[in-house]
């Protein structure tokens, strides 16, 4: 039984609608690859003892589409980032905020507190303790998020 909560699609939809608008759509997805070569990004969450306890993986399309949507950057900027696999700093800053808000989905009245520690644009740069913690995170929920005007991307939530 995971220590932290995992959202269902309905709960994810409520939060995503708040972030990106009522037309945002959520459907079940497949687990995202945690290998460094995958190009996926990862947010690591820590408990009050600074121990990594949860992670949120996203693919580059989600990072670009979600990162652009939050401050209404041009759609073309998101498309370019997906094509070149290079995210502008503003997109990463916005994605950090998205990951921060999504942390609420990992907690409920029964779980310990956690908070976003770091967003790693490169899975290869994950510190050793986070890598070890990631290997122990057996609870997961996986989604495909359709960000209105921008496009789809994948999101995987992982908890110990």
């Amino acid at each position: 039984m995971p220590v932290y909560a995992l959202p269902n699609a309905a709960a994810m939809k409520e939060t995503v609608a708040m972030l990106f608008g009522e037309d945002a759509k959520v459907t079940p997805g497949k687990p995202l690859d945690t290998k460094a070569s995958s190009g996926n990004l990862i947010a690591i969450y820590i408990d009050d003892d600074d121990k990594p306890v949860a992670a949120l993986l996203c693919d580059i399309p989600f990072a670009a589409n979600g990162g652009c949507a939050l401050s209404m950057m041009p759609v073309g900027a998101a498309k370019d980032a997906i094509k070149t696999k290079k995210l502008e700093q503003t997109m990463l800053d916005n994605l950090y905020e998205v990951m921060n808000i999504l942390s609420t989905l990992l907690m409920d009245e029964r779980t310990p507190h956690l908070k976003l520690a770091t967003l790693y644009p490169d899975l290869g740069k994950l510190p050793a303790d986070a890598k070890v913690a990631l290997s122990t995170m057996k609870g997961h929920a996986d989604f495909i998020i359709n960000v209105p005007r921008y496009g789809v991307g994948g999101l995987s939530l992982l908890v110990i």
Binding site: M18, L19, G21, L70, S71, N94, E97, V98, N100, I101
Partner: peptide, 14 residues
């Protein structure tokens, strides 16, 4: 959170 402030502003608009 600057993102939350943006979201509240957007929601007020909507």
């Amino acid at each position: 959170s600057s993102a939350m402030r943006m979201i509240v502003r957007r929601t007020l608009r909507e």
